[in-house]
Design a protein around this nucleic acid. Structure first.
Lengths: 134, 134
DNA sequence: CGTATTTATATCGCACACGATTTAATCTTA
DNA sequence: TAAGATTAAATCGTGTGCGATATAAATACG
C-alpha cells in the first residue's frame, strides 16, 4: 500500500525532526512557516499558505503561537487591510542561524545521499501535484 | 526539501482519499484500522498499533468512534484483562465490499502504474524504517 | 504469599489539519 | 456611487498524533 508507506513515512519524518527542533522550541509545521519567512520576510498569510499548502484555518493559530513566542509579528497591510503580513523579529531572524544544521542533520538521519534524496523529493512532489487538482 | 515533499504529499494523499471514503462515512486513519482488521479480525489494540505505528493515545479514541459508528466491538480479553480485542461487526465486515474499489481508484488518481507505485512504496518504507529506530 | 515491577489501555493536554461559516475589506458594476 | 460579489483572515467544530501521566491487570521475586 503506497498510501500507508506515505502516511507512516511522513509521521516518521516528523518524529525524526523532533529532537532537532525541540531544543529550538518549535514544531515541524512552525519550522516550515519560519523557513518560508527566512526565504522571504514580510509575506502575507495567503502567500505563506500557498507555498505550504495550508489555509488560514490552520495557519492563523500557528502564527499566533509563533507571535506569542516572539519569532514574528503579524500586522495588517496598510494598503489592503484584509491581508496580514508576517515579519520576523530579530529573534526570529537569529533562529535561522541556530537552525542552520537542521537540514543536514536530518539528511544524515535518512541515510540517503543528496542525489537519492533529490530524486525521492521530485518523485513525491510530482505525485503530490498529480493528486491535488482533482 | 525532501521533508516538505513528504509532508505535503502525505496531506495530498489524504485529500485524495477523502472523496473515496466520505461516502462510506470513515476517515483515512479509520480506513487503515479497518483494513488491518479485514486482514485479521480480533486483533488487540497493541497489535493494531504495532502495524499502524500508533499508540493507544491515538487509537483508543479512534476505535471508540468506530465502535460508536457500529463498525466493530471492543471487548476485554478473557484470558488477559489488560488487553482489548477488536471484533468487526457484520456491518464492519460488509464495509470491506463497499471499499473494495478504493485502492484502485486511488492508484488511478496517482497516475502511477503498479510498478512505479510499488517502487515508491518500497523507497518510502525503507526511508521510514531508517528514520525510526533513533 | 505478598509486594514490587512490568505491561496494556486509557486519559489528559496541546498542536496541527481541514470543512464550514463568519467578518471585514476591496472590487464590480449597474 | 451604492448594492452586490469577491477576497483575506479569522473562528468554530471534529478528528487525529503524540508526550506525559494514570489505572488496572499480570508477572516477577524475595
Amino acid at each position: 500500500m503506497l498510501c500507508f508507506a506515505l502516511y507512516s513515512a511522513a509521521h516518521a519524518m516528523q518524529a525524526a525532526y523532533k529532537p532537532l527542533l525541540e531544543p529550538l522550541g518549535i514544531t515541524y509545521p512552525q519550522y516550515l512557516a519560519l523557513a518560508a519567512l527566512w526565504a522571504e520576510d514580510g509575506q502575507t498569510v495567503g502567500q505563506l499558505g500557498a507555498s505550504l499548502h495550508l489555509d488560514s484555518n490552520t495557519l492563523t493559530p500557528l502564527l499566533k503561537r509563533l507571535e506569542q513566542a516572539g519569532w514574528l509579528i503579524r500586522t495588517r497591510d496598510a494598503t489592503d487591510e484584509r491581508q496580514v503580513r508576517l515579519h520576523l523579529t530579530a529573534q526570529g531572524q537569529a533562529l535561522q542561524e541556530s537552525a542552520a544544521t537542521v537540514p543536514t542533520c536530518f539528511l544524515d538521519r535518512t541515510g540517503l545521499d543528496r542525489d537519492e534524496a533529490a530524486t525521492l523529493r521530485d518523485d513525491l512532489t510530482t505525485l503530490r501535484d498529480r493528486m491535488r487538482p482533482r
